[in-house]
Structures are given as C-alpha cells and as structure tokens.
Amino acid sequence: MSLGRRCAGAILVALALVVAVASFSRTANAATAYRYWTYYVSPPNAAAWSYSQRGPASEHPQDGEVQGWRFAIQADRSGGLTPRVAPDFAKLCASQPATAGKVRVGVVLDFGVADDAPAGEHPPANVVTGCVLVADGASGVDVLDAAVGAANVRIGQGLICGISGYPKSECADVVAAPKPTAAKSASPKAPAPAKITATATPTPAATVPADQPAASAPAPTTTATLESTVALSSSAVPPSTAASESVATLSDLKKPSNKTFPTAAVIGVVLVLGLAVAAIVRGLGARR
C-alpha cells in the first residue's frame, strides 16, 4: 500500500513537472518575435547589409560606411528583414564631398510595412535615405541624431525604441510571429533586440554568411524593385506597403518638437510634495 502511495506521489510530481515544462515552452515559442528597429551596417565597399554585431552606441562608423534601420517584426533569425534599399554609398553620398576630420555615413531608415505597424499606428514614411557628416569617432547613435535630430530619437531600456515618433510608445515588444514564418518554424528564434551598447552574441545564424542576412528575406522581389530608387515616392511601392504620406528626405523627418507646459507633471509634483509634508506633520504629531 505504501508502495502504491509512493507511486502515486511520483506520478503526481512527474505530472506537475510536465505541466510546468509544457506551459513554459509554450510561452517560449509564442515569445519569439520582436517588433523593433533593427540595426544594420554596411562597411565601406560592402554591397550588402549585415546585422550589426555591436549596439549603435558602441559602433563607430568609418568614412564610406552605410548604416541602416529597419522597423519590422523580426520572427526568423536566419532571414532577418533588412532595409529595403541597398547600401549604395556612392549613390547615397554623391553630393557630399569628403571633409578632413569628419566621416561621411550613408543612412537608410526603413519605416517598414503597414502590416508590421503596432495597432492604431501607421508608418509615417516609407524608406528615407540620406547622407550625414559626423565627427570622426562618432557613434551610430550620433549618426542617427544627425540624421533625424536628437529630439526625434527615443531610447529606453537600452534600446532604440522610436525614430521620428514611430512607434509612439512601445519598445521592442514581443508580438505573435506572423503566420508564414511561424509555419516554417525550423528555427523560430528571432534575433533578439540588442542593447545599444551591447555586443551581439554570435547566433547560429551568424555561421551562415554573416554579410548576407537578406539572402532568405521574405520579400526578395520588393528588395529588387526598390534597389534602383533612392528617394522613394509612394508610387514605387506595392499598395500594401504604401505609406500614409511620402517623406523623401531626412530633413523632412526633423520635426521641431512642440513644447507644451507639463501641467500634469506639475500637478503630480505638488501631490507628491503635499503627501510628503502631510506624512512628516502626521509623524511629528503622533510622536508627541
């Protein structure tokens, strides 16, 4: 009888373990896609994008480099979604002469497709390209600041969360993986968003030619049609990816930040201070 009880206990423990493991592995599978600004670099004379192994605060561009940002749901590690414009430095920085002590960096900002946008939001632009001149030794964040203005870059939790107000408030949220990639499911791990200062850990995908992450990108046809265009207009893109308004140059993204008086914050500070004073008075009163 005691043997039977022991068996029952063992089965109970095993069941509990199975349930726990199953529930956790399910969350791990569901939590494989991140929606975030992915950071790509293309060193001088490289023809393709490569997923940056360093965060933009640790990445220091050379003259002739192109840096790309793509907002997308990254669901598949072996086929990351790259900016839909090729890193063609000669074309991007054609009108920018080399300057001593400064480096020229081509910039490609791809706001992604409407399907990848967070609920209630729409990409404010399509693909915006340009060329910036930054001091030698500047970082990738400086390049981004020079491109769209520091006030339009939102950083949180050590990540680049938003560029030019897109997305509005989320930051590298975990989302359900889009259907087609989920069905493939051979390697469902997405490239996790790297911190701006972090060095990316080598992933299984990095053993695949690291400079060709676009090789199995889900939309090779769009890449091909977009390659020829540098400054894009809405007509150049498929209807599903059309942007709400066409923003063609970097300077259009530098919106002046509208400063309003922070009434709510002032009310909050008054509330906090009032509560603190009340607590002190009450404490003194209680001691007496």
């Binding site: 909050g268 500070v269 509330l271 906090v272 509560l275 009340a278 607590a279 009450r282 404490g283």
Partner: peptide, 12 residues
C-alpha cells in the same frame, strides 16, 4: 513618489 508618500503617511 505617490506610492512612497502613501506608505510614509500611513506609517506616520
């Protein structure tokens, strides 16, 4: 800050 204030007020 509000949470801190509430905790302090009740303890006080």
């Amino acid at each position: 800050g509000l949470l801190l204030g509430v905790a302090a007020f009740v303890v006080a």
